[in-house]
Design a protein around this nucleic acid. Structure first.
Lengths: 318, 318
DNA sequence: GTGAAAGCGCTAACAA
DNA sequence: TTGTTAGCGCTTTCAC
């Protein structure tokens, strides 16, 4: 390419990157040659020379799950706006997905990682030289976490049940063996409710279980076990399952039973009755995570807080 | 690294890649040094030297859509099994996502592309030197397509309505301005039904519209327009929307109205009534697309057919 | 078996 | 303003 244009390689570099001073004459010359050969520079060579790939790895448990799907979509969009590409690793059904992926980070295939998987072994993330951000997930003391203000969310949720005079609330919570700030949501809600004399019971989901059958089974068991429940709090799909089981059982929502979802993804809009939800601001969280990791990659300072408040999403189930 | 081990770089390369002959003594020496420095080779340098990245780009309209979400998840899994990484581009909400992404292909950031977006302008894909495979999508005559046997699917669907004696079927079809083999599904079903004297009407969705509100609006309009419809055929979410509108209107499913979904993703299992569906074998399609693109990247031959048959997925809506 | 040397295609520092 | 040189970290001949 350089010789075709009759200039040095470095000059071509300057033209491509619009850097330094290049006379109009040689610029034209170079551009003409680029045009003629329809030359396209190798990103890989560039990556090697610059020691950066403009790629961020994203680790999530699942893609085909409403919450993570939306998270991934928003992260990818945000990365795109920052001129980064996304490599995705989905851990749910792989034996060694996560170690393999972290290894790619070490091999410098990507500049950093946004990690949101529900892994039990997080020792992988010790002593990494590249930046890692956790998405709603506690990994270790070195790794900062972008998350929703779950404690506030829990208060908002409790408030809803209290306002409607619920006496017995069941919370369907995620697997407690992983450490995520999201547990705070249920803990806070439970605390507030109990402080006001409401009975609170807890049903725990198994680990990395993201399919509807499981939610449905949990819902059925819940109704069998707690026949006088008048409020249920859980993630979107758990609540959707409860709504269907309630309908099948002849329990009227919201008259006899209040259902409140946490997350507020599209599935809460998809039933015959929209589900009332405390919504995690997924797009904002994604944008925040991306802006943080990009700053870290570039060694820049960022003072935005790591937490974003949830919002109430109106519906017809309370 | 080489000097630390007291050997030449080329020897280190041989050891890392388990290639050629290396004496046990020097192998140990190298491995010891790798251990000590906890040396990790640069994938980027490797990519440059080998002119391949082991990365496949995937372009889809959306992530947070049940069909595409599942497709992406399965593609990523299949790629992982072939030792490839996935770069994802989601086009739905971006101005220039697709051209930018194809440009990355030209810059050799990835070895090939699996393309499943609903783009209207496909001129981007002319004259590419790297392999591209279309996923259920017609791009141009050079680009092969992995897809479900939609024609068979259409026959299966028609058969269902005929068996149940439907007289007036409405098909909710995707935007017709893009060219996808999937249109064949509705065309075949319509033809078969009309041949048997069934009235068939068609409702068309707008382009790149993947949110539930739109499906819901289409469903409402459909019932208003065709008051005597006794069968509806459409993609999962369209049918889910119809089910809810029917419930709200007091139309009994399946007694008065048969609903049959095409795709058969998890959402058809999620309502109070599981939706009967003609299921696209997404995992198999994904695996096929991946195995094809990998073969193409490696210049190998592959004789598997490009098409896979759909299957009936039982439910309670016909 | 192993090392020296060239090359992958770019960027950066420095001269000219 | 532009060219020269060195270097990013690996792989691959090809001597030794």
């Amino acid at each position: 390419m350089a010789k075709a244009a009759g200039v040095a390689a470095s000059t071509v570099s300057l033209v491509m990157n619009k850097k330094g001073y290049v006379s109009d004459a040689t610029r034209k010359k170079v551009e003409a040659a680029m045009e003629k050969l329809n030359y396209i520079p190798s990103e890989v060579a560039r990556n090697l020379a610059l020691n950066r790939t403009n790629t961020i790895g994203v680790i999530m448990p699942s893609v085909s799950h409403p919450f993570f799907g939306e998270v991934i979509e928003e992260i990818e969009t945000a990365l795109y706006n920052y001129n980064y590409k996304m490599m995705l690793c989905c851990t749910q059904h792989k034996r060694n997905g996560e170690p393999t992926f972290v290894d790619m980070l070490k091999r410098r295939t990507m500049d950093g990682i946004i990690m949101g998987a529900h892994s039990i072994d997080v020792s992988l993330y010790a002593n990494l030289t590249q930046p890692v951000i956790a998405f709603d997930r506690y990994i270790n003391d070195q790794i900062p976490i972008v998350h929703c203000d779950h404690s506030l969310g829990g208060k908002m949720a409790a408030e809803v049940f209290l306002q409607h005079g619920c006496q017995h609330v069941v919370e369907i919570v995620g697997y407690q063996g992983i450490r995520t700030p999201a547990h705070e949501f249920h803990a806070t809600a439970a605390e507030q409710l109990r402080n006001s004399g409401v009975r609170v019971d807890v049903a725990e989901l198994p680990w990395n279980a993201f399919n509807y059958q499981i939610y449905s089974a949990v819902a059925q068991k819940l109704f069998a076990q707690y026949s006088h429940v008048d409020g249920i709090l859980g993630a979107d799909l758990s609540i959707a399952a409860c709504m269907h089981v309630a309908a099948a059982t002849g329990i009227r929502v919201p008259e006899e039973l209040k259902l409140l979802a946490y997350d507020g993804t599209a599935v809460t809009r998809m039933g015959s009755q929209p589900i009332t939800a405390v919504r995690q601001p997924i797009a904002e969280l994604a944008e925040l995570a991306v802006s943080k990791i990009v700053k870290m990659v570039n060694g820049e300072q960022d003072n935005r807080p790591w937490t974003i408040a949830p919002k109430m999403l109106p519906g017809a189930t309370v």
